[in-house]
Design a protein around this nucleic acid. Structure first.
Lengths: 245, 245
DNA sequence: GGCAAAACTGTCGGTAGTGACAGGTTTATA
DNA sequence: TATAAACCTGTCACTACCGACAGTTTTGCC
């Protein structure tokens, strides 16, 4: 049971160390399990493309570049599954479910990325997309059993690694934009927007100009760190900043 | 290694069954591990109080009621830790860190809730607070070793149980709120709109055209009887219709 | 197979929202 | 009396949203 011992040693590290560097985590994972490669990502998908918050991996750099340049990120059915839930996603089962993605899997194989593995979705406070992809280094026929056996290890360790990175993120974030409180007017216009009123209508209701309504709304958006009135209202409702009427 | 076998049997159930009832999950957990009691909660904490989204447990009903009535929910240092991160929280270590909470722990002991256990934070798409509290049924001196040994099992199984509930969430809540039921796609696009995504971005994320996103959003607006996406999202958030991914 | 519901797509024209430009007025507090 | 913070307003250019037009394809069920 040396396998077991190695896992518990790794668990102790992940539980007790404040920040575990990605390189170190990957090295430990590879020495503990039969893993060929690992990829951890925390990205935000936007109009302009995607904003990579964090990306660490052990794959061939040019292979990952090819994957990104070819736009595989947008069509990868594994990622689509990740976005749709919180369960671990086994690559093989997705491959079976999406035969139209066969070219992608073939390309990945050519790039040396292999096709046996599992991707674990990870929770982010905002709606970003974070995951740990684990590329197996066991014969294809042994993979299902190996995955079944070690999924619990992967899940816990991935969570702890992710938590470690997030916790170090928070420090930066909190010091960057400490909580801004909304003014009375900002709260008011958010409330009316949540009630479906347009800028013009809100201006009429509050007896101010449409422009001024926009001014308050823009301030509110900035303070809430969001990009649209819709998102601002969603935030405000969730955080109970809007009087219910 | 019957212990091991029992875990894997349970894993198979959690991975393959669409919806696992809380009662059944708890029973399976208790028969597989040395667990006295379990408590799963998914709540939303607001300034005006807390909204219980889901609550399942095996504790004494009146004990839980006392816990809530006494306002322990607000002062419980375990919950405070949970809110701050995504790591599993061991009750004993929190107790040591917060000597001022000793009365709470004593009260819990009186209520039969015990003081050896661990609470696992679970990811929610919105900023709700979800967790699985596991109350050990092993002698106090054996608990640290037992916890270390089975944390990975707890983490994975808790995740899968939580995922199962989340996946079945929208149906349950919509049936409560009656008339118009939103389709899966409609709730999905609402969720991304609440996250500040534009039609184009949502289309890209979901792998459909911008026009189709507009189609779903228009249907959602009509069903919710609102005039703007902003109002639709406000309604959806208030009524907890926002999708769970 | 037939039917309904859901999922999906295209185009047009008008209205609403958004960021960046550049200000002025009132009110509370140091 | 400074000084900040809130409150208030105008214009321009651009993008996003929204309703109404008119469909096709897929999925689940009887």
């Amino acid at each position: 049971m040396t396998d077991q011992q190695a896992f518990f040693d790794l668990l102790d590290i992940m539980e007790n160390e404040k920040l575990v560097e990605a390189k170190r985590f990957f090295a430990l994972m590879r020495s503990t399990f039969s893993i060929a490669n690992l990829l951890y990502a925390d990205v935000d998908i936007l109009t302009s493309g995607f904003v990579v918050h964090r990306l660490h991996h052990t794959f061939n750099v040019s292979a990952v570049r090819t994957y990104l340049d070819e736009g595989f990120l947008r069509i990868d059915p594994v990622l689509r599954s990740i976005m749709g839930g919180v369960r671990p996603v086994d690559w093989a089962s997705v491959r079976k479910l999406h035969p139209e993605s066969e070219p992608l899997f073939s390309a990945l194989k050519r790039l040396g990325a292999g096709t046996d593995g599992v991707t674990l979705p990870l929770a982010t406070p905002t709606r970003r997309l974070a995951f740990l992809a684990i590329h197996a280094d066991v014969p294809a026929e042994e993979w299902p059993a190996y995955r079944r056996c070690h999924l619990r290890d992967f899940q816990l360790l991935a969570n702890l690694f992710h938590a470690s990175l997030l916790e170090n993120d928070d420090q930066i974030h909190l010091s960057e934009h400490g909580d801004k409180t909304l003014t009375h007017r900002e709260t008011e216009v958010l409330g009316w927007a949540a009630a479906g009123k347009s800028y013009w209508e809100i201006g009429t209701i509050l007896g101010i100009s449409e422009r001024t309504v926009r001014f308050f709304m823009t301030n509110a958006r900035r303070k809430l760190n969001v990009v649209s009135n819709t998102q601002a209202v969603a935030q405000a409702v969730r955080r109970d900043l809007i009087p219910t009427f």
